[in-house]
Design a protein around this nucleic acid. Structure first.
Lengths: 212, 212
DNA sequence: AGAGGGAACTTTCCGCTGGTAAGATTACAG
DNA sequence: CTGTAATCTTACCAGCGGAAAGTTCCCTCT
């Protein structure tokens, strides 16, 4: 922060994680280097290494921060029968707006597998997602609820991942959230305003019931 | 292969790609090194670098091989109204059985973006997937078909990716293809509106207890 | 056959990387 | 005010990807 850097940084953890996000956004996760992150933070490369144990520890902390951020955003939407769709859109938006975090979150080969903070943050986000499905899909949760939960997660995760990989058609990017909503609607049609109560999470087939 | 290695390897390309798959399976993509691949192939590290241009070129070739393998597997299932589900299961199975290829295929930051062989292989696989959706759309493909295609791809891609990341419940791994089929059925119920194959998603419980 | 040219591979070297060990600086408790 | 622990630096190491130049071999042309 200040021009004359004191020997002790003061908030190295925050500075390093922010620098890591910056570096990933600029050069990609594959080219992320501890030394570059340290340079951006104004310290030598052994400072973050010592603080986080090693590079893996730093990425574990970044993934933990990501799961916490995701859980915070999911919490902003109160669970309800109509909010599964919005939870899905939130998931996609989070992935796109926090690309660096998101890419690290689902690369367990870059994590310290024994890190408890990571596991806690991941569980918190996972519970929020599962709860959104339970609240939306059925009047009463049944044996299909877990399948529906995996399906919902898979759909939005796949959509986000494919978009980040540049694999989806370019037109989608013009209204990414709208596209995400359209895709999610295929799996979980919202509670219909005309009174047609959805008895199961999916009653749309491609080009079938879709009146277009 | 033989004890007395000739100066010219003879089939370096194949040997290197196979060694790369082996190395990724053993140590993960993040720790893949050109020198290790070269060692496994019995050459110096500059041999694959020269053959493929650089490390990125090697991974581009690996991704291309992956898309070709995927397209081959998808081609094995003739497109039909009931085969979208099987195409999805094939996608998931491919990802799990060819983890190394799959991980490289969707990491464009590791590819040479100007490689035409990669683009061709990717398009071939993409067309086969899209065609499976079109063939399943009844009665006729409509404006929703592209959305359905993205949704189908997202669902199976997300399922495969999450499983590879170890993010899905462990029980799913016991019958991964069955679980994939159950999940895919939620998005595309095989029953046509007109009559046959009256299988319901509610019958497709993976056998696990209800979740909440 | 045998010579030339080019492809395949090696040798050598470079700067950069992550990790370790030991030393310097600072905060803080007693 | 003193000792100790935490924080960060300096110095060093082996391994990495890539560039440049040299060596070996294949293959065609005469």
């Amino acid at each position: 922060m200040s021009a004359d850097r004191p020997y002790h940084h003061g908030d190295l953890r925050r500075a390093v994680l922010a620098a890591a996000v910056e570096a990933i956004n600029e050069g990609g996760l594959a080219r992320l280097s501890l030394r570059d992150v340290a340079r951006r933070s104004g310290v030598t490369h052994t400072a973050p290494a010592h603080h986080f144990g090693d590079k893996t520890g730093m990425l574990t902390a970044l993934a933990t921060e990501g799961f916490d951020l995701l859980a915070d955003e999911l919490s902003a939407h109160p669970p309800g029968p109509d909010n599964l769709l919005e939870a899905g859109v939130t998931y996609v938006r989070f992935a796109v707006e926090n690309r660096a975090h998101f890419e690290v979150m689902f690369r367990p080969d870059l994590h310290n597998p024994h890190d408890q903070a990571l596991a806690a943050a991941r569980d918190r986000a996972g519970d929020l997602l599962a709860r959104a499905v339970v609240a939306a899909a059925h009047p009463a949760p049944g044996p299909q609820t877990e399948v529906a939960s995996v399906a919902a997660w898979s759909l939005v995760h796949g959509f986000a991942t494919l978009w980040l990989a540049g694999a989806l058609p370019e037109e989608l990017s013009e209204d990414l959230q709208g596209s995400a909503r359209s895709v999610a609607r295929l799996l979980f049609p919202p509670a219909s305003p005309d009174g047609d109560a959805p008895s199961r999470p999916a009653d749309a087939s491609p080009g079938g019931p879709a009146a277009d």
